[in-house]
Lab assay of single mutants.
Amino acid sequence: QTVQFNGLEYHFPNPEEAEKFAKKVAKELGGEVRVKDGRWQID
């Protein structure tokens, strides 16, 4: 599972970890999490 933001990609072994990370980062950055092409993106 991949999380993308600021032009970087973070890879996680399972979707739960990816989701948790994506939501944490979005909260800290005040961004929005969305899934695109099977990847988590933070904008």
Rank of each mutant, 00 (worst) to 15 (best):
N6R: 08
L8S: 08
E17F: 04
L29H: 13
K27R: 11
K27N: 09
A22E: 02
Q4K: 09
E16V: 10
D37L: 02
E32N: 11
I42V: 11
E32C: 15
A26C: 14
D43T: 14
V33E: 03
E19Y: 08
L8M: 12
D37I: 00
K23L: 08
Y10T: 03
A26T: 04
F12M: 01
A22V: 07
T2Q: 05
A18D: 02
D43H: 12
K20Q: 12
A22F: 05
F21V: 05
N14P: 00
W40Y: 08
E9V: 13
E16M: 09
Y10P: 01
E28Q: 12
K36T: 11
K20P: 00
K27S: 11
P13D: 14
P15V: 12
I42R: 02
F21P: 02
R34C: 15
Y10G: 02
A18I: 00
F5W: 12
V33S: 05
W40A: 04
V35K: 08
P13Q: 11
K23H: 11
G7L: 01
K36F: 01
L8V: 13
V33Y: 06
F21C: 15
Q41H: 12
E17T: 07
L8E: 11
N6W: 07
H11K: 07
E9K: 06
F12D: 01
P15I: 10
V25S: 02
A18R: 00
P13N: 13
V35L: 14
H11E: 07
G7K: 04
N6K: 07
T2Y: 10
E16W: 10
A18Q: 00
E17K: 04
K20N: 11
V33M: 07
D37M: 01
V3T: 01
T2N: 04
F5C: 13
K24G: 09
W40S: 04
F12V: 00
G7D: 07
Y10C: 15
D43I: 15
F12S: 00
R34D: 05
V3D: 00
N6G: 10
K27I: 10
A26L: 07
G38L: 03
N6H: 12
A18Y: 02
N6C: 15
A18H: 00
F21W: 11
Y10S: 01
Q41I: 15
G38F: 00
V33D: 02
G31V: 15
F12C: 14
E16H: 09
Y10F: 13
K36M: 06
I42W: 05
F5Y: 11
K20H: 10
K27E: 12
R34A: 08
V25R: 04
Q1C: 15
W40G: 05
A26Q: 07
D37G: 07
F21R: 01
K20G: 07
G7F: 03
F21T: 02
P15Q: 10
Q1W: 15
K20I: 10
G30W: 05
G30E: 06
V3S: 00
G30K: 07
E19A: 06
E16C: 14
N14H: 04
A22H: 01
R39Y: 14
R39T: 09
Q4M: 14
P13T: 12
G30D: 06
G7R: 02
K27H: 11
Y10R: 05
V35W: 15
G31H: 11
R34Q: 10
Q41Y: 15
V35P: 03
K23V: 09
E17M: 10
W40L: 10
E9P: 00
E16F: 08
E19C: 14
L29A: 07
K24A: 14
K20R: 12
G38Q: 03
K23T: 10
F5V: 14
G31S: 08
I42Q: 03
F5R: 02
E19H: 05
